[in-house]
């Protein structure tokens, strides 16, 4: 199907998950991502799948863990405070190397906060929001087409590396409707020779979270996890640039914030100010080398976020030695204004 349809971001994620072969979805409702469970409740029974509204977020993520252990492509979704409640399961799955796709349509925080789109969960997503040494592969789409395309990609990467893959969007992206060409249906799922499928006629597979004996059993396991993470860092970085060829200044932003920056860049370019956009798409693995290379060619970097400044730390760590890194952001579900971004960049000239 290559016809363009107008689709809401949240629903695009739901349909893309089904096209990627996801037939199990467990969740507990929360604004601003309720169109995902609503869509899955309607669509999954039509394709022979299972939709279940759990009694809590913890129950939902535990059901995801079970389905994943059984070898299924499985997804859950929530928004910020709900994702906090799911951290136990995310840490368990990361320890047990169980693939899953988890969607976080971020809202204003901390706490229950508000229901407007925000980007305050960057630290939680990229540093590992639960206990222990682990990473989640984090993808931050920038429009509805990418929400769909990267949902399919998230399932692929989750299975390829046996890792939890998070789609990190925000309320505005989830609520937004844009033209969309649906991704192609995945017709063949990768085999999972580790899954719990009944041990008749073979050695049992073990999916474990607790690793007590011998003393260094857990240490060795974490080294293995990090060998895997290294491969992901080497092979799976995704980023996008716009107007960077001749840029004197670089704006770094992801998700909805990057859309606002694109508008500011158009206005600045119209006034002859050479500014470009660097947009990380994978937030973990962060495009470390790529942003460092870009930083060598510009005079100053402005990081724009819908938060008090979280990704700016990664920008500082990787690009800070090549040029100054400035920050502009708004917390609490408010959007950075185009005019403020324009004024800030002009102040560098």
């Amino acid at each position: 199907m290559s016809e363009k349809i107008l689709m809401k971001g949240n629903e695009a994620i739901g349909e893309a998950a089904i096209l990627a072969g996801c037939r199990h979805y467990f969740a507990y409702p929360i604004t601003p991502q309720n169109e995902i469970p609503a869509y899955m409740a309607k669509r999954l029974p039509e394709v022979g799948g299972t939709f279940l509204q759990a009694e809590s977020e913890l129950a939902a993520v535990s059901m995801v863990m079970g389905a994943s252990a059984g070898g299924a492509r499985v997804m859950t979704s929530s928004s910020s405070p709900g994702i906090s409640l799911k951290q136990e399961g995310i840490s368990y799955m990361s320890g047990a190397q169980l693939p899953a796709v988890i969607v976080n349509m971020m809202r204003g925080g901390p706490g229950l906060g508000n229901i407007a789109g925000a980007q305050g969960d960057y630290f939680q997503a990229t540093r590992g929001g639960g206990n222990g040494d682990y990473h989640v592969l984090v993808i931050a789409p920038g429009n509805v087409q990418e929400l769909a395309d990267y949902t399919v990609k998230a399932f692929e990467l989750a299975d390829k590396y046996r890792i939890v893959c998070m789609i990190l969007g925000d309320g505005y992206l989830g609520q937004m409707s844009e033209p969309l060409v649906l991704p192609k249906a995945v017709d063949k799922l990768p085999p999972k020779d580790w899954a719990l499928t009944g041990a008749k006629g073979r050695e049992p597979h073990i999916i474990a979270s607790l690793r007590l004996n011998p003393d260094n059993y857990l240490e060795k396991h974490v080294y293995d996890l990090y060998e895997n993470y290294k491969k992901i860092e080497e092979n799976e970085v995704i980023y996008d640039t716009q107007n960077m060829e001749d840029a004197d200044y670089m704006i770094v932003a992801y998700g909805t914030a990057s859309r606002i920056c694109k508008k500011a860049i158009r206005l600045l370019r119209a006034e002859g100010i050479k500014v470009g956009l660097f947009r990380p798409v994978t937030l973990w693995p962060f495009p470390k080398k790529e942003i460092a290379e870009a930083a060598k060619k510009v005079k100053k970097i402005l990081t724009v976020e819908m938060s008090m400044g979280q990704m700016v730390q990664d920008v500082q760590i990787n690009a800070g030695k090549y040029c100054d890194v400035d920050f502009l952001g708004r917390p609490g579900g408010m959007l950075p204004e185009v005019e403020k971004i324009v004024q800030r960049v002009k102040s560098y000239v």
């Binding site: 363009k4 107008l6 604004t31 601003p32 508000n114 229901i115 407007a116 309320g171 505005y172 609520q175 937004m176 409707s177 844009e178 033209p179």
Partner: peptide, 22 residues
């Protein structure tokens, strides 16, 4: 939404964000 779909049919780029929630 209807305006978006009609304009999209004529090959325009469109976006739509509703106020939502509270």
């Amino acid at each position: 939404k209807i305006l978006c779909i009609a304009a999209m049919k004529e090959d325009k780029c469109v976006s739509h964000i509703p106020s939502y929630g509270a």
